[in-house]
């Protein structure tokens, strides 16, 4: 079983979708190098019922199922540090009070 399982939701083949897919590929290669991971890309236009079931509104949306807890990140994933932070793969910075 893969150590990391991710799913990316996009709508159609828009520049934003292409950008998100490219950014995700780059991120995985760098971050999960040498470890097992699984990435699935779902086009909502082709599978609207999955989007309905998962209550997806905004795209691109990246969902990380493994490792738990499940995390969701919205955006074109251009800032990889922010994405990793959102996925909980980086320790969160100390909170300002």
């Amino acid at each position: 079983m893969s150590e990391y399982r991710l799913r990316l939701y996009v709508v159609g083949q828009t520049p934003r979708a292409e950008r998100a897919i490219a950014n995700l590929r780059e991120l995985c290669e760098k971050e999960f190098d040498g470890r097992s991971y699984e990435v699935e890309v779902i086009d909502v236009l082709e599978n609207p019922q999955i989007a309905e079931k998962e209550k997806i509104l905004a795209t691109p949306m990246l969902v990380m199922f493994l490792p738990p807890p499940m995390r969701r990140v919205i955006g074109d994933l251009s800032d990889s540090e922010k994405v990793l932070l959102g996925l909980g793969l980086r320790p969160s910075p100390p909170r300002e009070s």
């Binding site: 709508v11 997806i56 509104l57 969701r72």
Partner: peptide, 17 residues
């Protein structure tokens, strides 16, 4: 779910639904 927004997005999925 806790959802974090990183970068550019749209509500295309809502429209598709």
């Amino acid at each position: 779910y806790e959802t974090v927004i990183v970068g550019d997005y749209d509500l295309g999925a809502l429209l598709a639904r």
